[in-house]
């Protein structure tokens, strides 16, 4: 199938750019690679017939959050390549924490039945009409509660960023 090749292309792109986020020397390059990762994942959503999720993913992550990231990194002027060697105890802690996370992930996937029950290319749940029906009928309360959570976070950020009134 044609979609299979697209799947492999997108997966390789996502993994490569995710690795490059960690390995690039310049912070700006890391941010741009992260954006590329988001695009590859949006492509996966399209393959799963979840167009709405794909487009919202691009609008929110690539279009808003990553632009703000880029903005901040540009203003901070982190361009100078200063690699300060971290002390040994930090390295040890990082390795232990990361290794534990990896063990947890492997444990999850070992116990999980990965075999796909339905054909992902034919499922209709990702189309905007069905998604809207599910969100506003079956999960109305959690949906509205999470929007209130976002609003609270926004108000909090504005309050924290505001200068003291004289």
């Amino acid at each position: 199938m044609f979609t299979k090749y697209i799947f492999f292309f997108l997966s390789i792109l996502a993994l490569y750019s995710a690795l490059m986020v960690l390995m690039s020397k310049k912070p700006i390059h890391s941010v741009l690679y992260l954006t590329l990762t988001f695009f590859a994942i949006a492509g996966h959503y399209v393959l799963l017939n979840a167009q709405f999720l794909a487009v919202v993913h691009v609008i929110v992550y690539a279009g808003a959050i990553m632009v703000l990231f880029l903005f901040t990194v540009m203003l901070l002027n982190l361009n100078k390549e200063e690699v300060s060697p971290k002390p040994l105890w930090i390295k040890t802690v990082v390795i232990i924490a990361g290794g534990t996370l990896m063990i947890v992930l492997i444990g999850i996937f070992r116990g999980y039945d990965i075999a796909i029950k339905t054909d992902p290319f034919l499922t209709q749940i990702g189309l905007v009409k069905n998604l809207g029906r599910v969100l506003y009928k079956d999960y109305l309360l959690p949906f509205e509660l999470s929007s209130i959570l976002f609003l609270t976070a926004m108000v909090g950020a504005v309050l924290l960023g505001k200068k003291e009134q004289i």
């Binding site: 700006i28 741009l32 954006t35 167009q51 709405f52 487009v55 919202v56 691009v58 609008i59 690539a62 279009g63 808003a64 632009v67 880029l70 903005f71 540009m74 189309l127 905007v128 009409k129």
Partner: peptide
């Protein structure tokens, strides 16, 4: 596509990258 408007917004929202990258 049944989300045509959102597609256009997605393109508009990534439109800033070219200018930002070039300017930086």
């Amino acid at each position: 596509i049944n989300i045509g408007i959102l597609y256009i917004f997605a393109i508009v929202s990534i439109g800033v990258y070219g200018i930002m990258i070039g300017g930086w």
